[in-house]
Design a protein around this nucleic acid. Sequence first.
DNA 1: TAGATTGTTAATCGATTAACAATC
DNA 2: TAGATTGTTAATCGATTAACAATC
Lengths: 224, 224
Amino acid sequence: MTVSPTRIPEATVARLPVYLRALNSLLDSDIRSCSSEELATAAGVNSAKLRKDLSHLGSYGTRGVGYDVEYLRYQISREIGLTQDWPVVIVGIGNLGHALANFSGFSSRGFRTVALLDADESRHGELVAGCPIRDFGELGQIVREHGVAIGVIATPASAAQAVCDQMIAAGIRSVLNFAPTVLSVPEDVDVRMVDLSSELQILAYHEQRKAPHVEGAPGTEGVA
Amino acid sequence: MTVSPTRIPEATVARLPVYLRALNSLLDSDIRSCSSEELATAAGVNSAKLRKDLSHLGSYGTRGVGYDVEYLRYQISREIGLTQDWPVVIVGIGNLGHALANFSGFSSRGFRTVALLDADESRHGELVAGCPIRDFGELGQIVREHGVAIGVIATPASAAQAVCDQMIAAGIRSVLNFAPTVLSVPEDVDVRMVDLSSELQILAYHEQRKAPHVEGAPGTEGVA
DNA sequence: TAGATTGTTAATCGATTAACAATC
DNA sequence: TAGATTGTTAATCGATTAACAATC
């Protein structure tokens, strides 16, 4: 219940999940304690940034020693809010929705998929990751029943805004959008967009600027 | 072949695909010309940022008038490098790889999936989005044959680093990683990570800080 | 005490924003 | 010419980084 003294910068918040994963992987290797340098390496950032980030949460390390992996993991989890349960609904059960429903990275972090919804009647009742596909019309009831606060949109772009509107009407204020379209929402609603095509385009931009691809270049090919 | 006068800021590069999509959607509505204000609204940013961003590319608008939608779209496409063809391989054809292979947002923007690779022999030959699944061992040959510059990793985390290493050995220098793990790569290789679980965690962080969820709140429920 | 490493300070860098001169 | 809107300037804000004092 300790409230953080200051607002945590957005860039830091975005990296906390990365630190969390790095800590988990250290624990998997039975590493109980680490320096900022080690953790930073595992997380793919530099140690100055890591220490600065952690300083926004509090003083959870020991000078001259480093961090207790389990303790730091707990503190970050708590800060993010992963010590509570987050019921989630996924709307649009195509291949992507399917993949999301099966993604263990969600369930292992306190995100519990309470319903899979799809507009296609012919798919209702089908089990995906042990959860039946239900009608989109049940959204409001499900949100009320389970206290769903986070909605995931994995529909085609054409349906996304309508789905989003319904989610908001049902009381959802945090939306993760995989549909390639900008959603308009009231300002108290958070939308995060995962834009697959943008990611490729950003890579293409940089690739284009690299040294031209040399045919039969210095590469080590066929390293089986 | 015109080289941009200055380096384009990273934050701007990340928004160019968004502008491109907004321009496409304007064209779909038969809108041939727009102001920075209109385009910014469609893209979900403010107009000052939009104009600043575009100013890094050149002067493609007309003062007092606005932008020609088709012309601006072409200029942004060219800047990103979408006027050329980008052969892509996808490795790991589970639900997510499946979804990516079928994603029209890739193919419609010059990204051509030339191969789907998976380590699981039992799936070899299976057609996904009209493309047969092939053995991961063929990676080097496929990259050479098609001049693949971009690799997509949709494997489990445990396989991702090895897949990435092979991609780099085969000559790939741009990687889009969906596996929930940090990849270590030489500095001339670009990795973009799409981290589904991080996105949910970031939403959870903000949700947690919002006003506590009121049971039976002012919501409009059941708006069918 | 001496060595190690955190947490913080201060400098630097990059991104955002508002305002407006240029110009259609 | 008058109105509209871009492209640019300059101010502000936030993020990164290096260096180091605090302290285990």
